[in-house]
């Protein structure tokens, strides 16, 4: 069966690749492009460990077929930091110890960015419901939620005072 030719943008870089019909975006990110930061926790869109942004919209890469990426802009965890300058969300996760094993962390960082991009001042409840699609088994979510709220406050402050 002939492969499909996909032209897309990943983390602001143009990308061309060949894939099978059945391959997911997660498969090609990890296996073709070597971007292993997005993780497969379940393959069925229930755990959020493969969270990426597609034109700024939060999606599970395991639920997107690779062929669907054509013509879209994909942002993965590898594209969140600016070079070696961490995004405020990433920095806050470190300061607040919002990770233990770290396997869910890429998914949470991407999901949190998607939230703060559209709602810079969420309540705790809004944060919890937005992140309900990301499973964490180590932390009980407490420090993750606190880190997101604190990062949001710092980002609002930065936006006002520059």
């Amino acid at each position: 069966m002939a492969k499909h030719h996909v032209t897309t943008t990943v983390n602001r870089q143009p990308v061309e690749l060949l894939c099978d019909t059945s391959e997911t975006l997660l498969d090609v990110l990890r296996d073709e492009l070597g971007l292993t930061g997005s993780k497969e926790g379940c393959g069925s869109g229930d755990c959020g460990a493969c969270s990426v942004l597609m034109d700024g919209r939060l999606v599970c890469a395991c639920l997107v077929l690779a062929v669907e990426a054509t013509g879209h802009e994909i942002t993965t965890i590898e594209g969140i930091a600016e070079g070696n300058t961490l995004h405020p969300i990433q920095q806050q996760f470190l300061e607040d110890a919002a990770l233990q094993c770290g396997i869910c962390t890429p998914g949470f960082v991407v999901a949190a960015k998607a939230l703060l991009d559209r709602n810079p001042d969420p309540t705790e409840t809004e944060v919890r419901f937005w992140l309900a699609g990301n499973l964490c088994r180590c932390t009980g979510y407490d420090k993750i939620v606190r880190a997101v709220l604190t990062a949001a406050a710092k980002m609002r402050e930065e936006a006002v005072h520059g």
Binding site: R30, T36, E40, A81, L86, Q90, L99, G102, I103
Partner: peptide, 19 residues
């Protein structure tokens, strides 16, 4: 303090078993 392996974990660089 910030954990020594932290930067790799928040940027997706840390290598887990499937990586």
């Amino acid at each position: 303090p910030i954990r020594p392996d932290g930067a790799d974990k928040v940027t997706g660089r840390a290598a887990f078993g499937a990586d």
